Amino acid sequence: MTAVTTTPTGTTTKTSAETATETAASTAPPAVEEEHQVRRRRRLSPGKRLPAGRIAGPLLVLALWAAASAAGQLDPGAIPAPWTVVETGVRLWTEGTLPNDVLTSLRRAGAGFAIGLTAGIVLALASGLSRIGEALIDGSVQLNRAVPTLGLIPLFILWLGIGETFKIAIIAIVVYIPIYLNTHAALSGIDHRFVELAEVQGLSRFAFVRQVVVPGALPGFFVGLRLGVTGSWLGLVVLEQINATSGLGYMMFQAQNYGRTDVILVGLVVYGLFGLVSDTAVRAIERRVLSWRRTLSS
């Protein structure tokens, strides 16, 4: 038991045990104190990434789908079981139909994405680094954004014909808009103090773009890139149902005419895999390029 001594003046004198405890706490190593502070801070963060965390959601949906199908809760004619879809996909791949459609879709999406990516970056740089460019470009892009892109299909068919050209052009428009908007917003959001610092340091135009503009615009660019990749697949599934003789969208359209929901689900699964793989690839590149940043997700 700890004793407490009270002086005649009413003040309390600490015992030797209490004094020793406080002395030990005050002389604790700084590393231990810093570790305790870090632990307290880490309680506010989301924590470590879960292994294969991004596929946990799709796996849960697949498990629920399989359980409902096995229990007879789903109509096989409307929503076939997962194993039925897998069997159909294997059969289509073995027959050579699915590989041909996949390659055709990848070629269309790749061509449109490359054009849209280039256009989005060039227009964003021209508009974000020049007031004249912003006056000439930004208003037109904002107007284009307000017009539904798929609503341009009839006009593009009259302009470019009903072949492959108009499909690639529509995909390019779907891709370039989010890339332009996010990159331009990132350029506009660069702190003006960095610009003043570059002027004081006497940086050339090229050095300014390389050392200030590019690092400042990359986070927004990658957001637009992810949206553009997703948009290319969304536009493709619609465009391939218009006067197409091959492609995943054409395969799904023909399956609709014959009531083959299993084939339609095969096409949707392939589109989903394309979107998941491409988004994962963009995320991996983003983490590698922006490894110097310390954000909540990292």
Rank of each mutant, 00 (worst) to 15 (best):
G189E: 07
I190S: 04
I190H: 10
D191P: 08
H192Q: 15
R193I: 15
F194P: 02
F194T: 02
F194Y: 15
F194N: 07
V195F: 13
V195S: 12
E196P: 08
E196V: 06
E196W: 12
L197K: 04
A198W: 12
E199Q: 14
E199K: 14
V200C: 11
V200I: 15
V200A: 13
Q201H: 12
G202T: 09
G202Y: 10
L203C: 05
L203M: 14
L203V: 01
L203P: 09
L203F: 14
S204L: 09
S204I: 04
R205T: 13
R205E: 13
F206Y: 10
A207P: 00
Q211E: 12
Q211G: 00
V212Q: 08
V214Y: 02
V214E: 00
P215K: 03
P215L: 00
P215A: 06
P215C: 03
G216C: 05
G216Y: 03
G216M: 02
G216E: 02
A217H: 00
A217R: 00
L218T: 01
P219N: 06
P219Q: 06
G220C: 02
G220W: 01
F221Q: 02
F221W: 10
F221T: 02
F222T: 00
V223L: 06
G224T: 07
L225H: 06
R226H: 08
R226K: 15
